[in-house]
């Protein structure tokens, strides 16, 4: 019994830690999507953020600078994204995919040039890494964003850019710059999420370190219905499955013993790491398909704004 309790508290603690990159990225997604711009490029922004943070921390021995470096890298990638989708009115999904591909290609190229290694960056000593700060920062950000949407006029404009941009234009607020702000801040948050991954939760950057977390954050914000608080809860929930999946790998579970081999394999699948790790995606499918309360996106999401309509 004691052992079960120990495992459970370990799983919950690691879920709290592992969910903070997701929370940052999900906040980034919310900032962009509430202003009306679809963001499937969170993954790429997290990747460059994780890489830049590891590199800056390695050279300057300062995790604070590393965190800023990660945010800056996300910001730069986001500005390329906004240039194309807002100014050039490119398709947001195609461009988002391109940004992800760009990040996946450019990170190993720079890594090769700096360290003669496309895989991972050098280890960062423990003293130069964060232990808690980014995790606390992610929670502070959730509260700040929530308050910003609820109590500030900027937050209200932001939501109008996503729900009814022409009404916002009529009231004299520039939709284009509101959306630029949304996408740029999404880059900063996603970059912070990546940085948390490389300089807080691990000791260096490894190839494809984000491993789909950008997409999982997207799933969390949809399950959380585009709201910061609920999205953060969804992130913890998803982090929990991740932690359970990893813990399962180290445990020896009792093997199912039915007469039919097929049934045995079936049961084994449902207690496997692989299955536990796809549960968040299954839940998202169920939530988006509207089987448990439909999740409604901002009305003008994905529609380019034409000033002189």
């Amino acid at each position: 019994m004691m052992q079960v309790f120990e495992i459970a508290s370990f799983v919950f603690a690691s879920a709290l830690r592992m969910s903070s990159p997701l929370i940052f990225a999900a906040l980034g997604g919310i900032m962009s999507e509430r202003s009306g711009v679809i963001n499937i490029s969170l993954e790429g922004k997290m990747l460059v953020g994780a890489f830049a943070a590891a590199v800056v921390t390695y050279y300057f021995h300062s995790p604070v600078l590393g965190l800023l470096g990660g945010a800056l890298a996300g910001f730069i990638l986001a500005s390329i994204y906004s240039l194309f989708v807002i100014s050039f009115k490119s398709n947001q999904i195609v461009t988002g995919t391109a940004i992800n591909i760009l990040a996946a290609g450019i990170v190993p190229l720079i890594s090769q040039a700096l360290f003669q290694n496309t895989g991972s960056t050098p280890e960062i000593p423990m003293a130069d890494r964060f232990t808690q700060f980014p995790i606390i920062l992610s929670w502070v950000s959730v509260v700040l964003i929530w308050a910003w949407f609820r109590y500030s006029p900027f937050g209200l404009w932001h939501q109008f850019a996503g729900e009814h941009p022409y009404a916002l234009q009529t009231s004299g607020v520039d939709v284009i710059s509101t959306r630029w702000c949304g996408v740029l801040s999404s880059g900063i948050f996603a970059g912070l999420g990546g940085a948390t991954l490389s300089i807080c939760l691990s000791s260096n950057f490894t190839r494809n370190m984000t491993a789909g977390r950008g997409f999982m954050a997207l799933a969390a914000l949809i399950v959380g219905r585009w709201r910061p608080m609920t999205a953060a809860v969804a992130c913890i929930f998803f982090g929990l499955f991740d932690a359970v999946g990893i813990t399962l790998q180290g445990l020896t579970l009792p093997q199912p013993d039915f007469d039919s081999a097929l049934l045995n394999n079936f049961v084994k699948f449902f207690i496997s790491t692989q299955f536990v790790q796809i549960i968040p995606y299954l839940l998202t499918v169920i939530a988006v398909a509207g089987f448990v309360g439909r999740s409604r996106p901002p009305k003008a999401l994905g529609i380019p704004f034409l000033k002189n309509r």
């Binding site: 100014s87 050039f88 490119s90 391109a98 996946a104 290609g105 190993p108 190229l109």
Partner: peptide, 23 residues
């Protein structure tokens, strides 16, 4: 200094440029 990852960068550039309607 340059690895096969350059292919990804070229792909991304092609998509960005060809789908930039406004441009």
């Amino acid at each position: 200094n340059v690895t096969s990852d350059l292919a990804l960068v070229l792909q991304a550039l092609i998509i960005l440029v060809v789908s930039a309607d406004g441009l």
